[in-house]
């Protein structure tokens, strides 16, 4: 057991790892829902590959969560056998796919955050966290490049595509604040040097988002109400929208119906 684990409350560390892992898992599942339904073959392949990257990253993060927890739970146990209230992903990633514009805008808003998080985590005091982040960073950079390009092409595209991108932005922007909200868990892992405070990633994210929206000729929604950071709600605390239940029903069915089933 590394020194960093002794220096931080183990429950907080596990909780934080579940947040990072669940974001990748739930977004990966959402993106995989496009498989066989995308507007063109190339996009279908791209989305499936991206889902694969995210689910691969989730295996690493949840695998480490199980290891730090020390109760013999594997990444599969955590993915397939937790109920919705035990999931720690932000609300943004469980938003429905909507149209292609909403899927892409959700991806861009998350990728722009994800890249900053992975970059910062490369300097984590826990070497296991740092090495997963260094691996994931390359994949996330590739995702951001693609989602930003598409937000720009479609925003600065036809009237129809521009309207859809603007609508997607207006719908999703109120779910972005949760990614940068610091709570007790975030503060505990930040104090141990394991992860940056989410709020410290905000400025870089803002700069990326503004630059891309401008190139996309989209209007920044400005200050809006933010879900998940007021009162008792929020995905990071396990208070989810009803959408997560439907995702889990599909994702977990096999393991719930046939416990221990393997390929």
């Amino acid at each position: 057991m590394g020194a960093a684990v002794a220096a931080v409350d183990r429950a907080a560390f596990v909780e934080w790892l579940e947040r990072v892992g669940d974001n990748a898992l739930v977004l990966g599942h959402r993106v995989s829902e496009w498989c066989g339904h995308s507007p063109v073959l190339e996009e279908d392949i791209a989305l499936a590959n991206q889902a694969l990257d995210l689910i691969g990253q989730c295996q690493l993060w949840l695998g480490l969560a199980g290891e730090v927890e020390g109760q013999g739970r594997s990444a599969d146990n955590l993915a397939y056998l937790r109920d919705a209230a035990a999931f720690r992903n932000v609300l943004l990633v469980e938003r429905p796919n909507g149209d292609f514009g909403q899927t892409l805008m959700r991806q861009f808003l998350f990728d722009a955050f994800h890249i900053e998080l992975m970059r910062a985590l490369k300097a984590s005091s826990d070497p296991r966290v740092a090495e997963i982040a260094a691996k994931a960073e390359k994949e996330v950079a590739y995702h951001l490049e693609r989602s930003a390009d598409l937000v720009i092409s479609l925003g600065d595209g036809t009237e129809e595509s521009r309207n859809r991108m603007q609508k997607a932005l207006n719908v999703l922007y109120p779910y972005t604040g949760e990614m940068f909200h610091d709570d007790a868990t975030d503060k505990a892992v930040a104090e141990a040097g394991i992860a940056p405070l989410p709020s410290s990633l905000r400025a870089a994210w803002d700069a990326t988002v503004r630059e891309v929206l401008e190139a996309a000729t989209l209007t920044h929604p400005g200050e809006t109400y933010q879900h998940g950071i007021n009162g008792a709600g929020g995905g990071k605390r396990g208070v989810h929208s009803e959408y997560l239940g439907y995702i889990l029903a599909e994702m977990q069915f096999l393991q719930r119906a046939y416990p221990g089933a393997v390929w």
């Binding site: 390359k138 950079a141 490049e145 630059e211 190139a215």
Partner: peptide, 14 residues
């Protein structure tokens, strides 16, 4: 030439 997510480079490519 790996993607590094740096926007200036990306926009230049565009």
């Amino acid at each position: 030439t790996a993607a590094d997510g740096r926007l200036a480079g990306r926009i230049a490519r565009l």
